[in-house]
Amino acid sequence: MPSETPQAEVGPTGCPHRSGPHSAKGSLEKGSPEDKEAKEPLWIRPDAPSRCTWQLGRPASESPHHHTAPAKSPKILPDILKKIGDTPMVRINKIGKKFGLKCELLAKCEFFNAGGSVKDRISLRMIEDAERDGTLKPGDTIIEPTSGNTGIGLALAAAVRGYRCIIVMPEKMSSEKVDVLRALGAEIVRTPTNARFDSPESHVGVAWRLKNEIPNSHILDQYRNASNPLAHYDTTADEILQQCDGKLDMLVASVGTGGTITGIARKLKEKCPGCRIIGVDPEGSILAEPEELNQTEQTTYEVEGIGYDFIPTVLDRTVVDKWFKSNDEEAFTFARMLIAQEGLLCGGSAGSTVAVAVKAAQELQEGQRCVVILPDSVRNYMTKFLSDRWMLQKGFLKEEDLTEKKPWWWHLRVQELGLSAPLTVLPTITCGHTIEILREKGFDQAPVVDEAGVILGMVTLGNMLSSLLAGKVQPSDQVGKVIYKQFKQIRLTDTLGRLSHILEMDHFALVV
């Protein structure tokens, strides 16, 4: 994948999101292997301009796509893939009243899908469409860049269908997702969380590099694949309309690839034109409109599966009536509230959605109805927002919020430890010299600072030695090549209790 991002070429006709291997024109390309080798690009942008032909009021008969309808489940399912879809609609009884809503608040519980998330729908649909058009064949390999849930859905379907599955996901995604993927037989590649989507090191860039190296491999490409919004247009939206008897006044959905909100909203605009569509985008993402909503100094966020630093091709923002931004604290607070007060075992993005819903639905009156999409299960986040310690460490809970008995030293300040200034190293000294210094002084790690004293990161003896043994660096290389740029900081005025929580999850903390 090139470091400079080429513009994806656009073909003359058809839909841009065809499933299957992508040609340089962004659509299915038939021909000899030699032709494909000559024409197939190194990668295709996940934010390529959409060429979708959908228009409100256009006859369904003019759609270029294969459409399906929700099917009634048999008493005995032939395999677990038949437990994807037909998820329950559940009334939220307490939270709406707590925040003064007059309307009825309903939750579409997508964590009841077989793999635990709304992404099971698009995973199965992308595979079925690729099999139907002859792209996927027995023994082929599926590769997908994902925040985890699409990966789980694909790995689940691949396990049943017999495909090899490789999932490329950023490091910030939970260990629970990784464990589930491994249990399903998927191979996992992790990428830096802070890598831009168009960087060769991003999950998108690495996935395309693997595709170019592995024979008979395919990126189904949830960011561009029409099967993504079509899955929701054909099934999720129809289920909502049936469950609500066609009567709903507002739908609120958090947005990642945009397939969920695009597919549902398009069908609702056709069948229930008075329904307002509300999009939820986390602070630090750029999906919301108008652009002024996205202006923030924050560039990272903890909530998973929603928000991006690019506009995915499948996201149709014209069908969203209003956007709201959400933050991590309210997302996790509301997710825990949904679990504790409503018994809905949902993930953090569901918290984002409901946090926005109780604001947006203030305009609705008694007798009206708001539906929220709860995308995934708490299963993926047992060591994250479900953990009091994690919430404390991230600053989303305060010590006084917890009532468990603490040891005698818990409320003492870090400054009472009488710490001395640490050994520091410059980023320009060599790895070999740094190892000598650390061994001589008896230290395992040291902060790396520039000549102005600005902290650049941390270097550890173990990481340097393993990097040297693996051949990633040489003793003569500058130590700046092996620094940890993500590390926890703590102030002298913070409590030892807070430091204790940090050290339970990290090997060190830097006192500043």
Rank of each mutant, 00 (worst) to 15 (best):
G20L: 14
M169Q: 02
H67Q: 09
L156T: 04
D133F: 05
G14F: 10
T141M: 13
P46G: 00
P192M: 06
G246E: 04
G115I: 07
C103Q: 01
D79K: 05
P78H: 11
I143V: 03
D234S: 07
I84F: 11
A186P: 01
I80F: 09
V180R: 02
E270S: 05
E176K: 05
P74F: 08
D221P: 03
P74E: 10
T236L: 06
G14M: 12
M169P: 00
A48H: 09
P215M: 08
D79C: 08
T141L: 14
K269W: 03
A186M: 00
D140V: 09
T257A: 06
G274P: 04
W208G: 06
F111E: 04
E187Y: 08
E62H: 05
S217K: 05
E176Y: 00
T236W: 00
A114N: 05
H22L: 10
I240P: 02
V204K: 07
P74N: 06
K211G: 06
A237I: 00
K102N: 15
K267L: 12
S23W: 14
S73M: 13
L77W: 03
T135V: 08
T87W: 00
A253H: 07
M89A: 04
E62M: 14
A69Y: 13
P145N: 02
D79M: 06
P49E: 09
S174L: 02
T68L: 14
R121A: 01
N149R: 04
A195D: 02
S199L: 06
E176S: 07
A155R: 01
D221I: 02
I80W: 01
T260N: 06
V206W: 02
N93M: 02
T87G: 05
L136C: 13
G185A: 09
E29S: 13
V204L: 15
P21I: 05
D245F: 07
S202W: 00
A60V: 11
E201T: 11
V189N: 06
I167G: 08
K271T: 15
T236A: 05
L241H: 03
N149A: 05
W43H: 10
K137L: 15
E213Q: 15
N93F: 03
G274V: 03
D140Q: 06
M250N: 00
T236V: 02
D133Y: 14
V189I: 07
S117N: 06
T141N: 14
K211D: 06
H65G: 01
L101Y: 04
